[in-house]
C-alpha cells in the first residue's frame, strides 16, 4: 500500500460505550472521513454526530509529538530516552523511599484493552502496588 492510495479501515468508534462499527477513510496517510459499518449488529449502518465527525483531532496541530519535561517551570522537548530515564529513576526513588504504595496509576477508559492490561501489569508487577484505577465512575 503506497502513501498515495486511499483505503478504508474497519474499526470502532472511540466515543461512547455503544461501540458502533465504522470505517476510517484514509487518503495519503491521513484520515479524511468516516463511513458507518452496515454489517454491525448495533449501529446497522448508522452513526451519531460524534461517530461521523469526531475524527479531526487526529490531525490537529496541537497533538503532542515529543516528550516534554518541565525544567524551571517551563516545558522543554526531550528525547524519549531522557524522558523515560527520568520517569524510571523518579519512580524507583520514590518506591525505595516510601514504598510501592506511594505511587498511583490512573489507567484509561479511552485506551485499548491491551494497553490497560499492560498498564495494570506495570503497576502490579513492576511497581508492586494495587493503586490502579480509571475514570469508570466519572
Amino acid at each position: 500500500m503506497t502513501e498515495k492510495e486511499s483505503k478504508r479501515v474497519l474499526t470502532v468508534c472511540p466515543y461512547c460505550g455503544t461501540g458502533c462499527g465504522l470505517y476510517l477513510v484514509v487518503e495519503k496517510g491521513r484520515v479524511v472521513g468516516i463511513e458507518p459499518d452496515g454489517l454491525h449488529p448495533v449501529n446497522e449502518g448508522e452513526l451519531c454526530v460524534k461517530g461521523y465527525y469526531g475524527y479531526q483531532h487526529i490531525d490537529n496541530t496541537e497533538r503532542l509529538t515529543s516528550p516534554l519535561i518541565k525544567k524551571d517551570g517551563k516545558f522543554v522537548a526531550v528525547h524519549w530516552e531522557e524522558a523515560l530515564d527520568f520517569v524510571a529513576r523518579q519512580l524507583a526513588k520514590i518506591k525505595q523511599e516510601s514504598g510501592p504504595d506511594a505511587i498511583a496509576l490512573f489507567a484509561s477508559a479511552r485506551a485499548t484493552n491491551e494497553e490497560n492490561y499492560v498498564a495494570q501489569k506495570f503497576a502490579r508487577a513492576v511497581i508492586g502496588t494495587n493503586n490502579v484505577d480509571h475514570c469508570a465512575r466519572l
Binding site: V12, G17, N116, Y117, Q120, V132, D133, H134, C135
Partner: peptide, 20 residues
C-alpha cells in the same frame, strides 16, 4: 450504559484497585 468506549474493557482488564 457505559459512558466511554472502553470503560468496560478497562474494568475487565483489571484497572481497578481491588481486582486483577
Amino acid at each position: 450504559l457505559r459512558g466511554q468506549n472502553n470503560v468496560q474493557g478497562a474494568c475487565d482488564m483489571g484497572c481497578l484497585p481491588n481486582s486483577l
